[in-house]
Amino acid sequence: MPITAPLAIVLIVASFIGAANSATYVLGMLTSGGGMNPSKKLRGFWGIAQGAVTIMLILVGGTTALKTLQTASIAAAFPVMLVMCYSIYKALSEESV
């Protein structure tokens, strides 16, 4: 137990850092007109913007705001998931064996 808790924290932090890095890269690509190598200034801007929004959510609403955001994300993704499930079903039913 004394080793697993710090190791879990390190892995969670690494996961968040990787996800944030990917998100800033994709946002940079989208805002630079689809360029595969967005500038570091643009990626830095998106990183700071994401961090600022996160800090504001935590300071203003605490865990309640984060829970509300999580619920809204799930509710918004549900119709998309239904369409994806239908599309997969349709594609698999058309597949010839």
Rank of each mutant, 00 (worst) to 15 (best):
I3R: 12
I3Q: 13
T4E: 13
T4N: 01
A5N: 05
A5H: 07
A5W: 10
P6Q: 03
L7P: 00
L7S: 12
A8H: 00
I9C: 07
I9W: 13
I9A: 15
V10E: 03
V10Q: 03
V10K: 07
L11I: 06
L11N: 10
I12T: 12
I12L: 15
I12W: 14
V13Q: 02
V13Y: 13
F16C: 12
F16L: 15
F16E: 12
F16K: 03
I17D: 03
I17C: 05
I17T: 09
G18L: 07
A19M: 10
A19T: 11
A20K: 07
A20P: 00
A20G: 03
N21C: 02
S22V: 08
A23R: 10
T24K: 14
V26W: 14
G28C: 02
G28M: 06
M29K: 15
L30E: 11
S32R: 04
S32C: 04
G34M: 02
G34Q: 05
G35M: 04
M36P: 04
P38I: 04
P38V: 05
P38G: 09
P38R: 09
K40P: 00
K40M: 12
K40R: 13
K40C: 00
K41V: 12
K41W: 09
L42H: 08
L42V: 15
L42F: 05
L42K: 09
R43Y: 01
R43E: 10
R43G: 00
R43D: 01
F45R: 03
F45W: 08
F45S: 02
F45Q: 06
W46L: 01
G47P: 02
G47S: 01
G47L: 02
G47I: 05
G47D: 00
I48P: 00
A49M: 14
Q50G: 11
G51F: 06
G51S: 04
A52M: 04
A52V: 10
A52F: 08
V53M: 10
T54D: 01
T54L: 09
T54C: 05
T54Y: 10
M56D: 04
M56F: 13
L57Y: 03
L57Q: 10
I58N: 00
I58P: 00
I58C: 02
L59I: 07
L59M: 14
V60A: 13
V60P: 00
G61M: 11
G61N: 02
G62C: 00
T63L: 13
T63P: 03
T64A: 15
T64G: 06
T64H: 06
T64D: 11
A65N: 04
A65I: 00
A65S: 13
K67S: 14
K67C: 00
K67N: 14
T68F: 06
T68D: 14
L69H: 06
L69V: 11
L69R: 03
L69M: 09
L69S: 06
L69E: 04
Q70K: 13
Q70Y: 05
T71F: 02
A72L: 15
A72Q: 12
A72D: 07
A72V: 10
S73D: 03
S73H: 04
S73K: 03
A75C: 01
A76R: 03
A76P: 02
A76S: 10
A77Q: 08
A77P: 01
F78D: 11
F78L: 15
F78A: 15
P79L: 05
P79T: 08
P79M: 07
V80P: 05
V80C: 03
V80K: 06
M81W: 09
L82Q: 11
L82V: 15
